[in-house]
Amino acid sequence: MTNHPAALHVRPAAPDDLPAIIALDREVTGLEKPEYWRDLYSRYGSRDDDRRCFLVAAIGGQVEGFVIGEVRAWEFGSPPCGWIFAIQVRPRCRLGGVGTRLFEAVRDRFRAAGVDRLRTMLARDNNVILSFFRSQGMMAGPFLELEMELDAQSGR
């Protein structure tokens, strides 16, 4: 946990941040996905505006967290709303305000983009991130996610 929240700086991600972002994701998930993060950066980081953003939180120049989100409209009939689809904070920096600063930054951008609702989706067993979003005031939304296995045998 950091004891220096004042030194925390939230800013748009830059190409030079990618190695740190890939390493942070690897530290948290145990998987290295460089192509995935480069692709996300090309789609969300290189065209940073209020409707799509890729932000990093840095302490003393080191990336300790990041968030990615965008405004999406009319998916499943939903009016435009801001989606957060990735947020990550280095484990040793958690409960130090890094995630909250990232959340607030993306929320402010979405507000500036004219949307009044924030949405996300994550695994039911992801207690850490679920608890984080709950702590920010997020509640269950009006959608239910459904899925099925595509069984070649039954032809379904």
Partner: peptide, 13 residues
């Protein structure tokens, strides 16, 4: 999952 995701701190808010 809902009960697991809500801390007392969140409930107080």
């Amino acid at each position: 999952a809902t009960f697991r995701s809500i801390t007392l701190s969140t409930m107080l808010k």
